[in-house]
Design a protein around this nucleic acid. Structure first.
Lengths: 101, 101
DNA sequence: TATTGACTTGACAGTTATTGTCAAATGTAT
DNA sequence: ATACATTTGACAATAACTGTCAAGTCAATA
Protein backbone atom coordinates (compact mmCIF):
# COMPACT_ATOMS: atom_id res chain seq x y z
CA UNK A 1 0.00 0.00 0.00
CA UNK A 2 1.07 3.51 -0.76
CA UNK A 3 2.42 5.50 2.14
CA UNK A 4 3.96 8.67 0.87
CA UNK A 5 3.07 10.67 3.96
CA UNK A 6 4.52 8.16 6.41
CA UNK A 7 7.66 7.63 4.40
CA UNK A 8 8.20 11.36 4.19
CA UNK A 9 7.81 12.15 7.87
CA UNK A 10 9.97 9.21 8.79
CA UNK A 11 12.72 10.44 6.50
CA UNK A 12 12.41 13.98 7.81
CA UNK A 13 12.55 12.75 11.38
CA UNK A 14 15.66 10.74 10.73
CA UNK A 15 17.32 13.61 8.96
CA UNK A 16 16.57 15.79 11.96
CA UNK A 17 17.99 13.08 14.20
CA UNK A 18 14.87 12.99 16.26
CA UNK A 19 13.54 9.92 18.05
CA UNK A 20 9.92 8.84 17.65
CA UNK A 21 9.60 9.49 21.35
CA UNK A 22 10.59 13.12 20.86
CA UNK A 23 8.31 13.77 17.94
CA UNK A 24 5.44 11.84 19.46
CA UNK A 25 5.52 13.78 22.71
CA UNK A 26 5.31 17.07 20.86
CA UNK A 27 2.23 15.87 19.03
CA UNK A 28 0.81 14.44 22.21
CA UNK A 29 0.69 10.89 20.94
CA UNK A 30 1.99 7.47 21.83
CA UNK A 31 5.16 6.30 20.09
CA UNK A 32 3.28 3.25 18.94
CA UNK A 33 0.87 5.54 17.17
CA UNK A 34 3.67 7.42 15.48
CA UNK A 35 5.27 4.19 14.44
CA UNK A 36 2.05 3.11 12.83
CA UNK A 37 1.62 6.41 11.07
CA UNK A 38 5.15 6.22 9.71
CA UNK A 39 4.57 2.71 8.44
CA UNK A 40 1.18 3.54 6.99
CA UNK A 41 -0.69 1.25 9.32
CA UNK A 42 -2.70 4.19 10.66
CA UNK A 43 -3.22 7.60 9.24
CA UNK A 44 -2.52 10.89 10.91
CA UNK A 45 -5.44 13.14 11.72
CA UNK A 46 -5.67 16.14 9.50
CA UNK A 47 -5.06 18.58 12.30
CA UNK A 48 -1.82 16.83 13.15
CA UNK A 49 -0.30 17.64 9.80
CA UNK A 50 0.42 21.21 10.79
CA UNK A 51 2.13 20.01 13.93
CA UNK A 52 4.23 17.53 12.01
CA UNK A 53 5.27 20.31 9.67
CA UNK A 54 6.28 22.50 12.57
CA UNK A 55 8.28 19.86 14.39
CA UNK A 56 9.94 18.60 11.24
CA UNK A 57 10.51 22.12 9.94
CA UNK A 58 8.91 21.60 6.59
CA UNK A 59 6.12 23.21 4.61
CA UNK A 60 2.70 22.02 5.74
CA UNK A 61 1.39 22.08 2.19
CA UNK A 62 3.87 19.46 1.16
CA UNK A 63 2.72 17.10 3.88
CA UNK A 64 -0.94 17.78 3.30
CA UNK A 65 -0.51 17.00 -0.37
CA UNK A 66 1.06 13.64 0.38
CA UNK A 67 -1.56 12.91 3.00
CA UNK A 68 -4.35 13.57 0.53
CA UNK A 69 -2.58 11.63 -2.20
CA UNK A 70 -2.37 8.57 0.06
CA UNK A 71 -6.10 8.62 0.55
CA UNK A 72 -6.74 9.06 -3.15
CA UNK A 73 -4.61 6.06 -3.90
CA UNK A 74 -6.37 4.04 -1.26
CA UNK A 75 -9.64 4.61 -3.11
CA UNK A 76 -8.43 3.37 -6.48
CA UNK A 77 -5.84 0.86 -5.39
CA UNK A 78 -6.05 -2.34 -7.39
CA UNK A 79 -8.65 -0.95 -9.77
CA UNK A 80 -7.87 -1.29 -13.44
CA UNK A 81 -9.93 1.84 -13.98
CA UNK A 82 -7.86 3.76 -11.46
CA UNK A 83 -6.27 6.11 -13.94
CA UNK A 84 -9.48 6.77 -15.78
CA UNK A 85 -11.26 7.56 -12.53
CA UNK A 86 -8.49 9.93 -11.52
CA UNK A 87 -8.78 11.77 -14.81
CA UNK A 88 -12.52 12.12 -14.36
CA UNK A 89 -12.02 13.46 -10.86
CA UNK A 90 -9.35 15.83 -12.10
CA UNK A 91 -11.71 17.27 -14.67
CA UNK A 92 -14.38 17.72 -12.06
CA UNK A 93 -12.01 19.51 -9.72
CA UNK A 94 -10.82 21.80 -12.49
CA UNK A 95 -14.37 22.52 -13.47
CA UNK A 96 -15.36 23.37 -9.93
CA UNK A 97 -12.36 25.61 -9.52
CA UNK A 98 -13.35 27.52 -12.63
CA UNK A 99 -16.96 27.76 -11.58
CA UNK A 100 -16.02 29.20 -8.23
CA UNK A 101 -14.41 32.27 -9.74
CA UNK B 1 -21.15 17.63 -3.37
CA UNK B 2 -20.22 15.72 -6.48
CA UNK B 3 -22.51 12.92 -7.51
CA UNK B 4 -21.62 11.76 -10.97
CA UNK B 5 -22.67 8.18 -10.36
CA UNK B 6 -26.08 9.04 -8.98
CA UNK B 7 -26.79 11.60 -11.65
CA UNK B 8 -25.85 9.11 -14.34
CA UNK B 9 -27.99 6.23 -13.14
CA UNK B 10 -30.90 8.54 -12.60
CA UNK B 11 -30.61 9.82 -16.14
CA UNK B 12 -30.27 6.31 -17.53
CA UNK B 13 -33.28 5.17 -15.57
CA UNK B 14 -35.39 8.03 -16.84
CA UNK B 15 -34.28 7.43 -20.40
CA UNK B 16 -35.31 3.81 -20.00
CA UNK B 17 -38.62 4.97 -18.60
CA UNK B 18 -38.19 2.84 -15.53
CA UNK B 19 -39.56 3.65 -12.13
CA UNK B 20 -37.33 3.59 -9.05
CA UNK B 21 -39.58 0.83 -7.81
CA UNK B 22 -38.76 -1.30 -10.83
CA UNK B 23 -35.02 -0.77 -10.68
CA UNK B 24 -34.90 -1.12 -6.93
CA UNK B 25 -36.68 -4.46 -6.90
CA UNK B 26 -34.22 -5.89 -9.41
CA UNK B 27 -31.34 -4.86 -7.18
CA UNK B 28 -33.18 -6.10 -4.13
CA UNK B 29 -33.26 -2.74 -2.41
CA UNK B 30 -35.76 -0.34 -0.99
CA UNK B 31 -36.85 2.53 -3.20
CA UNK B 32 -35.75 4.90 -0.49
CA UNK B 33 -32.26 3.51 -0.80
CA UNK B 34 -32.26 3.98 -4.54
CA UNK B 35 -33.53 7.49 -4.14
CA UNK B 36 -30.67 8.25 -1.81
CA UNK B 37 -28.13 6.69 -4.14
CA UNK B 38 -29.43 8.75 -7.03
CA UNK B 39 -29.25 11.92 -5.03
CA UNK B 40 -25.81 11.13 -3.65
CA UNK B 41 -27.00 10.89 -0.08
CA UNK B 42 -25.79 7.26 0.12
CA UNK B 43 -23.40 5.44 -2.07
CA UNK B 44 -24.01 2.18 -3.89
CA UNK B 45 -22.09 -0.87 -2.84
CA UNK B 46 -19.44 -1.86 -5.28
CA UNK B 47 -21.09 -5.16 -6.10
CA UNK B 48 -24.29 -3.36 -7.04
CA UNK B 49 -22.59 -1.52 -9.87
CA UNK B 50 -22.67 -4.55 -12.13
CA UNK B 51 -26.34 -4.98 -11.44
CA UNK B 52 -27.06 -1.35 -12.20
CA UNK B 53 -25.20 -1.73 -15.46
CA UNK B 54 -27.23 -4.74 -16.41
CA UNK B 55 -30.60 -3.23 -15.55
CA UNK B 56 -29.78 0.07 -17.20
CA UNK B 57 -28.15 -1.60 -20.17
CA UNK B 58 -24.90 0.26 -19.98
CA UNK B 59 -21.24 -0.64 -19.69
CA UNK B 60 -20.24 -1.48 -16.13
CA UNK B 61 -16.86 0.17 -16.57
CA UNK B 62 -18.49 3.49 -17.18
CA UNK B 63 -20.43 3.30 -13.94
CA UNK B 64 -17.49 2.01 -11.94
CA UNK B 65 -15.38 4.88 -13.19
CA UNK B 66 -17.92 7.43 -12.04
CA UNK B 67 -18.37 5.63 -8.75
CA UNK B 68 -14.64 5.75 -8.09
CA UNK B 69 -14.40 9.35 -9.24
CA UNK B 70 -17.06 10.37 -6.74
CA UNK B 71 -15.03 8.92 -3.93
CA UNK B 72 -11.88 10.58 -5.14
CA UNK B 73 -13.60 13.91 -5.19
CA UNK B 74 -14.96 13.34 -1.73
CA UNK B 75 -11.41 13.02 -0.44
CA UNK B 76 -10.15 16.29 -1.86
CA UNK B 77 -13.34 18.31 -1.82
CA UNK B 78 -12.75 21.80 -0.53
CA UNK B 79 -8.97 21.38 -0.40
CA UNK B 80 -6.98 24.03 -2.16
CA UNK B 81 -4.32 21.41 -2.74
CA UNK B 82 -6.85 19.11 -4.40
CA UNK B 83 -5.39 19.30 -7.86
CA UNK B 84 -1.83 18.92 -6.66
CA UNK B 85 -2.76 15.86 -4.63
CA UNK B 86 -4.53 14.35 -7.61
CA UNK B 87 -1.46 14.83 -9.74
CA UNK B 88 0.72 13.16 -7.12
CA UNK B 89 -1.67 10.23 -6.92
CA UNK B 90 -1.78 10.02 -10.69
CA UNK B 91 1.97 9.75 -10.87
CA UNK B 92 1.96 7.05 -8.23
CA UNK B 93 -0.67 5.05 -10.08
CA UNK B 94 1.23 5.36 -13.34
CA UNK B 95 4.41 4.31 -11.62
CA UNK B 96 2.78 1.26 -10.07
CA UNK B 97 1.25 0.26 -13.38
CA UNK B 98 4.68 0.37 -14.98
CA UNK B 99 6.30 -1.52 -12.16
CA UNK B 100 3.75 -4.31 -12.39
CA UNK B 101 4.65 -5.23 -15.96
C1' DT C 1 -59.99 19.13 -3.60
C1' DA C 2 -59.54 14.12 -2.54
C1' DT C 3 -56.96 10.21 -4.24
C1' DT C 4 -53.34 7.85 -6.22
C1' DG C 5 -48.71 6.69 -7.09
C1' DA C 6 -43.73 8.23 -7.39
C1' DC C 7 -40.32 9.89 -4.97
C1' DT C 8 -37.86 12.02 -0.86
C1' DT C 9 -36.62 12.64 3.80
C1' DG C 10 -35.63 11.87 8.81
C1' DA C 11 -34.92 8.97 12.40
C1' DC C 12 -33.65 4.76 14.34
C1' DA C 13 -31.24 0.39 15.83
C1' DG C 14 -27.91 -2.82 14.20
C1' DT C 15 -23.67 -3.43 12.27
C1' DT C 16 -19.07 -2.34 10.87
C1' DA C 17 -14.84 0.44 10.95
C1' DT C 18 -11.68 3.34 13.24
C1' DT C 19 -9.57 5.05 17.34
C1' DG C 20 -6.04 5.32 21.13
C1' DT C 21 -3.73 2.60 24.48
C1' DC C 22 -1.42 -1.02 26.60
C1' DA C 23 1.73 -4.87 27.00
C1' DA C 24 4.63 -7.76 24.78
C1' DA C 25 7.82 -8.59 21.00
C1' DT C 26 11.50 -7.27 18.15
C1' DG C 27 15.49 -4.76 16.79
C1' DT C 28 20.00 -2.35 17.74
C1' DA C 29 23.90 -0.68 19.81
C1' DT C 30 27.02 -0.66 23.85
C1' DA D 1 23.23 -9.08 29.14
C1' DT D 2 21.44 -4.30 29.41
C1' DA D 3 19.23 -0.29 27.87
C1' DC D 4 16.72 2.04 24.74
C1' DA D 5 14.12 2.52 20.22
C1' DT D 6 10.78 0.77 17.49
C1' DT D 7 7.18 -2.42 16.02
C1' DT D 8 3.30 -5.31 16.58
C1' DG D 9 -1.09 -7.46 18.23
C1' DA D 10 -5.03 -7.23 20.87
C1' DC D 11 -8.52 -4.86 23.07
C1' DA D 12 -12.41 -1.80 24.54
C1' DA D 13 -14.32 2.58 23.39
C1' DT D 14 -15.96 5.38 20.02
C1' DA D 15 -17.41 6.95 15.55
C1' DA D 16 -19.23 6.03 10.96
C1' DC D 17 -22.09 3.59 8.07
C1' DT D 18 -26.08 0.49 6.86
C1' DG D 19 -30.80 -0.84 5.70
C1' DT D 20 -35.47 -0.05 6.92
C1' DC D 21 -39.53 2.06 8.34
C1' DA D 22 -42.92 5.68 8.58
C1' DA D 23 -44.10 9.97 7.39
C1' DG D 24 -43.37 13.57 4.23
C1' DT D 25 -43.66 16.14 -0.39
C1' DC D 26 -44.96 16.45 -5.06
C1' DA D 27 -47.57 15.97 -9.53
C1' DA D 28 -51.15 14.24 -12.15
C1' DT D 29 -55.85 12.96 -12.56
C1' DA D 30 -60.57 12.01 -11.33
Amino acid sequence: MSNQFGDRIKLLREESQLLQRQVASQLDMDTSMLSKIESGDRKAKKNQITQFAKVLKVNADELLTLWLADQLIEVVEGEYLALKAILVAEEEVKYNAKKKK
